[in-house]
């Protein structure tokens, strides 16, 4: 089970939080965990400060009235893309596994996944 998102903006709560989204060290550690990153202790404070400043800037998006506006997820032509379902020969394990950091026979090897 993932832990619930910890309260953000511990330093600036309530009303002020709308104007200054302060990301804490704890926030960075939690988000890093979700991203499967292990942020070095020496970097956590720096990241917390930089990401806070970025989010503070991004907060201006709240000023835009978007009522009734459709979201735009991409810039591709809005047409469905179909193709014939024709089987192709797969490239085979030698090509597929050519860059594997560790392999055994035709399998990728990874550290223990289940405790």
């Amino acid at each position: 089970m993932e832990a619930a998102i910890p309260p953000l903006g511990e330093t600036f709560g309530g009303f002020l939080a709308d104007f200054f989204m302060k990301i804490t060290k704890k926030d960075i550690e939690y988000i890093a965990h979700l991203s499967r990153l292990e942020v070095d202790d020496s970097l956590v404070d720096k990241f917390a400060d930089q990401v806070s400043r970025i989010l503070q800037y991004i907060d201006k998006l709240k000023d835009v009235d978007v009522s009734g506006v459709e979201l735009m997820a991409g810039a591709a032509l809005s047409t469905n893309v179909f193709r014939e379902d024709i089987p192709h020969t797969p490239p085979g394990p030698e090509i597929t596994l050519a860059n594997a950091p560790e392999r055994e026979d035709d399998f990728y090897m990874v550290p223990k996944a289940v405790g």
Binding site: I31, V39, M72
Partner: peptide, 28 residues
Amino acid sequence: QRRIITGTYALSAGYYDAYYGQATKVRS
């Protein structure tokens, strides 16, 4: 790493609509 963290934050539960949702509408 900074961008992965910012992006993960913007897409995370509770913040998705406020950040990613809002940004894609502004993109429109």
